[in-house]
Design a protein around this nucleic acid. Structure first.
Lengths: 235, 235
DNA sequence: TGTACATCAGTGAACGCGCGTTCACTGATGTAC
DNA sequence: TGTACATCAGTGAACGCGCGTTCACTGATGTAC
């Protein structure tokens, strides 16, 4: 775990490369990530970058992994603000954090959940694992609530749920009940749809306050999950 | 309305250009649309294309408008298969058509609902109008159901709804009640989230049958809208 | 503490490629009398 | 029906640009004895 001076410098440079790539994305979308451009910004020649990333694709993979992790961190932080048994509060705040993170990091969000980057094929096991952290931030709390005796209100019948959503035998340490899985993904897809459409401007002009709409729908999701918030009810 | 021979040939060429552009999108995403490439495929020189579209951006605008219209056509067709007062059936089939169209035309779907194309700014009034046809396919039926005495089951209180979703004064011929608007957009965002995540492979491995999951959630949406389907209930 | 060697960061030139757009032009198609 | 003219489709050369990646190399930094 000890890092030499050289390793530290090297890691800093790797970070700087990623930071500039992120900046490029902000300015021109994911397609604008360019080694030549990064080299220019760093006052290097472009072949020098190949010391740090073997190719453009490898850089993109690193960006994607970091992005999943950053989003997952934000969600976990929101969840951790409440005690373990405050399921509703945890999920509600996690949901708000999902939108908040997406709106403050729009290009990062689109990097992972938007169009695939042309010519890029993400192969990495690591990326899959990082992506799972995001789902886990929602599903973990839901599963805990389920075990504690709060099943989803409109739960799918167990036999049907098992058929539709066969338990993953690969990761037994991360077992989510199929009933929870279906209800959880149903909730997540709704959050995702709202965020995606708002982010890309497809709801423009519909609402006076998007945060209010989102909160309203989050409450409905909580109701569907059979979890009640310690909050004043809606008028 | 009479078209001369020349105009017909011209329109065919315009259509051919768009068709090839679509093919490019299928192969390499929206970023792969290239006038040089189109010219090559048509065995023309690239300046010749400027007779038909003043610029790459204008071509993309045409593609976007066509795409919104094609999706709206598909939705309207699904809805038209049922009589005007079969609200639930209309909406259910419209919802299924939304997913079906997205899955059969993934790149087109991403052209309109995916990442913005770098360097492209859609300015067109026409595009906005075409985009509205898609919402209208859902909201029109919902509004009709509302007027016929089927309010959304979990309707927002009117005063709150009006505040959150101020009626658009611009298009009085297309008036949707705020209560319907909120419930309708809530439903649409959920459909959209499911479609988007499935399309981009983010639900991979979760379900044995995505169509079943989608149908299941569509039923829940119908329930929320207070509309019952003439279908055998779920087991 | 000093020397010999290995490692590593970065250079500069080059490869081959593709892009959108402009310009002055040729030759074919249509139109008016 | 034939002729003179206008319209239009398409050409070929050029502009200036940017891209990812390779290669043989120089010079600095670290390491082992």
């Amino acid at each position: 775990m000890t890092t030499t001076r050289r390793e530290r410098i090297r890691n800093n440079t790797r970070d700087e490369i990623k930071a500039i790539a992120r900046q490029q994305m902000v300015e021109g979308g994911t397609a604008a990530i360019s080694l030549n451009g990064i080299a220019r910004a760093m006052e290097l020649t472009s072949p020098a970058l190949y010391r740090y990333y073997a190719s453009r694709d490898e850089l993109i993979t690193a960006l994607i992994i970091d992005t999943y992790n950053a989003l997952a961190d934000a969600l976990e932080e929101a969840s951790a603000a409440h005690p373990a048994n405050a399921y509703a509060q945890k999920l509600f705040d996690t949901s708000l954090a999902y939108r908040a993170w997406a709106l403050t990091h729009p290009t990062d969000f689109l990097l992972i959940y938007g169009n695939p980057i042309p010519g890029y094929q993400l192969p990495s096991e690591q990326a899959m694992a990082a992506a799972q952290r995001v789902y886990a931030a929602f599903l973990g709390t839901m599963q805990a609530a389920y075990i504690a005796g709060f099943p989803p209100k409109r739960a799918t019948h167990r036999t049907l749920a098992i058929e539709l959503c066969p338990p993953l035998s690969e990761h037994p340490e991360f077992q989510i009940d199929p009933v929870v899985m279906i209800a959880g993904i149903a909730g997540w897809t709704k959050l995702h749809g709202m965020v995606m459409l708002e982010l890309l401007g497809h709801l423009q002009g519909a609402f006076s306050d998007y945060a209010d709409f989102y909160r309203l729908e989050c409450r409905h999701i909580m109701e569907d999950l059979g979890l009640s918030l310690d909050m004043p009810p809606l008028p």
